[in-house]
Design a protein around this nucleic acid. Structure first.
Length: 596
RNA sequence: GCCCCGGUAGCUCAGUUGGAUAGAGCAACUGCCUUCUAAGCAGUAGGUCAUGGGUUCGAAUCCCGUCCGGGGUACCA
């Protein structure tokens, strides 16, 4: 049982016994005792003054006496102003450590038959260009919150909605037809998604030139944008596609297949995966049907130009378009269709959409629309809204090529990891293949940790130069400490030193107790991360834990201790720290190397 | 205009349901490799928590105003 729960219960008892009052458990405010005071857990007594009608000091004294007398684990206490510092006895901390060491799944739960089913949608790429840094944040967050949900005992389905149709892909198709000369991934040696992305940029270049030309001829900006030959041709392709023109559909299939091959490589390198993939080309018609049903049922209305709308003014929002005047579907239409298909396929209890915060309004509307269409789960959808990734040079614009490409970034970071390792003379004992794997692990650890350690809701700054940092509060620092722990454990095994979970030790130093306290916090951290959908909570916890261990590690020798009980105790700490950190980093999708 | 989010050290970020003297890392400066991995450790310096008010025993945290930044805002996704 966690110390907070024990004390909380006891305080409720104490208040009843001393002041004959019933208390809401939430009024019991406990916190870690500050390092400069004696004690482990601190109770704030200010809220009780009304009940005791005594000074803070006397109230704290009375409660302290009661707790010391009635609670086994409370060994002593002291009072400073309105703060009651409780000293918890050694046995409690040793028992906790044993538990961490023995319990292979400490802090994480397994899904059971009746567990809640959570579906997490993330990634959701367009098929006209490769993945970039913004997608990386999305993918890492999506993967991580899915893993965290699992660790909290939820059943999880990871899903991806691929936006495989629409004007954007037609632009790439048109450019390929015009200027591609039959180029393929095989003939060019390019990754499929990069090749298609190149044509998307190519399209935009021509399109812009055409607009400029038309503007010179005296057309208005709007006219020019609508009458440029390229865009007209792309629209024609979209029309043909919707009319199922065989040649167009064939080209669409071919180019999309190139992109998927490329995406598969990127996903694999990034270490993310999906249980079920939906394609917009298969869901948008379902969405259209639903909108028409809503129209027939009078939930939506039609304007004179035949466009279909929802009136959300009763919900404090505006009018929202659902079908264009030409009958084609918009973004919202397909999301309605996808949602319907998903809830038909799975018995979903909670739907989580990992999508950037520029779409907050979209998901607010989607929830209301689904509700209006009679889907009971509509109101409960959760939009996991994360902030944008900014660069020192400003914003990323895919059309202008000012993006940080996902594949390039991973490769570059691997290069830096390799160079750094060589300079430091690390990993020389490993084979080329093993070393290569480790470089990749370190590079991705750095990238993932850098992105996941910040609060997902906030915009974050990504400086490519500074982010490739392997010192300080970084993934590699945590991996490094882990590798050293494994090294110590290997050496212990070599020396035939057995590790015993039974701890018989006279005294526990302050530093060691700090570590034990922090270890015992892990289950609460996993829970908090799950409730707040925040991988950052786990990242920062792991850093603190590892940092504290490092300090301990420098001040104390583990293997060079004469007293076997002390050596065993330290080995158990090292092993427990290793386990917890590995578990935590796993929830972030970060692998831990055995040596580095 | 209206709506949403943010502002903490030079930079990047933490900061527990309001609690004691606001914390890390980077960058700068100083020490420490005959001792389990120096991708490390110890130390110095760096703050009007954007700003003005309010709530109370107590505010970076809650409420209101102002300034600055980002996003959204009816036929892009």
């Amino acid at each position: 049982m966690r110390i907070e729960s024990i004390i909380q219960e006891a305080v409720l008892e104490a208040i009843k016994a001393l002041y004959d009052a019933e208390l809401n458990p939430l009024q019991v405010q406990l916190q870690n005792t500050r390092k400069d005071f004696d004690g482990d857990v601190t109770l704030v007594v200010f809220p009780f003054l009304r009940l005791s009608r005594k000074s803070p000091e006397i109230t704290a004294e009375e409660i302290g006496n009661y707790l010391q007398e009635h609670v086994d684990v409370v060994e002593a206490f002291n009072v400073i102003k309105g703060f009651l510092n409780l000293v918890i006895n050694k046995d409690y901390w040793l028992n906790t450590l044993s538990e961490v060491y023995t319990d292979g799944k400490f802090g994480t739960a397994l899904a059971e038959e009746n567990s809640e089913l959570v579906m997490v949608e993330y990634s959701s790429p367009n098929t006209n260009k490769p993945l970039h840094l913004g997608h990386i944040r999305n993918n890492l967050l999506g993967y991580s919150i899915a893993e965290i949900a699992k660790a909290n005992g939820k059943k999880v389905v990871k899903t991806n909605i691929v936006n495989d149709r629409g004007i954007h892909i037609c632009k790439s198709m048109y450019a390929w037809q015009q200027w591609g000369n039959g180029k393929t991934p095989e003939s060019s040696g390019m990754k499929g998604d990069h090749l298609v992305g190149e044509f998307y940029v190519e399209f935009d270049k021509h399109y812009k030139a055409e607009i400029a030309e038309l503007l010179e001829k005296g057309l208005s900006k709007e006219e020019a944008e609508n009458k440029a030959p390229s865009i007209v041709a792309a629209r024609e392709l979209l029309r043909k596609w919707e009319a199922k023109d065989p040649e167009t559909v064939e080209l669409w299939k071919t180019m999309n297949s190139w992109v998927y091959e490329g995406f598969d490589v990127t996903y694999k390198n990034l270490g993310v995966d999906f249980d079920k993939i939906y394609y917009e080309s298969e869901t948008y018609l379902v969405g259209k049907e639903e909108v028409l049903r809503g129209l027939a049922e009078g939930v939506f209305y039609k304007k004179e130009d035949n466009s279909v709308w929802a009136d959300l003014s009763a919900d404090g929002l505006d009018q929202k378009i659902l079908l264009r005047s030409d009958g084609t579907s918009v973004y919202m239409t397909q999301d309605i269709g996808t949602a319907k298909m998903r809830f038909n396929d799975y018995s979903i209890d909670k739907m989580v959409y990992v999508v950037g915060n520029e779409q907050n309004y979209h998901f607010q509307v989607l929830a209301i629309l689904l509700d209006k269409l009679g889907f009971s789960w509509g109101k409960d959808l959760y939009h996991f809204s994360y902030g944008m990734v900014e660069l020192p040079s400003g914003k990323m614009k895919s059309r202008e090529g000012t993006v940080v490409d996902a594949d390039d970034l991973m490769d570059q970071m691997t290069e830096v990891a390799r160079k750094m390792s060589e300079e430091l003379g690390k990993l020389e004992s490993l084979s080329g293949e093993e070393a290569e794997k480790t470089f990749r692990m370190i590079a991705l650890g750095a990238l993932k940790y850098f992105i996941l350690k910040v609060d997902p809701r906030k915009n974050m700054m990504f400086n490519p130069e500074e982010s490739i940092d392997f010192n300080g509060n970084t993934g590699p620092f945590i991996q490094y400490t882990y590798a050293r722990i494994q090294s110590v454990l290997r050496k212990a095994a070599d020396k035939q030193i057995a590790i015993d979970s039974k701890l018989e030790i006279e005294t526990v130093s302050e530093k060691e107790k700090e570590l034990l306290k922090r270890l015992s916090l892990y289950p609460a951290v996993v829970k908090e991360a799950g409730e707040n959908y925040s991988p950052a909570v786990i990242a920062n916890y792991c850093y603190e834990l590892v940092k504290e261990f490092n300090q301990f590690y420098h001040d104390h020798s583990i293997l060079g201790v004469d007293d076997p009980a002390v050596m065993n105790f330290r080995l158990v700490i090292a092993s427990a720290v290793g386990k917890v950190v590995k578990s935590g980093m796993n929830l972030l999708g970060i692998e831990m190397p055995e040596r580095m």
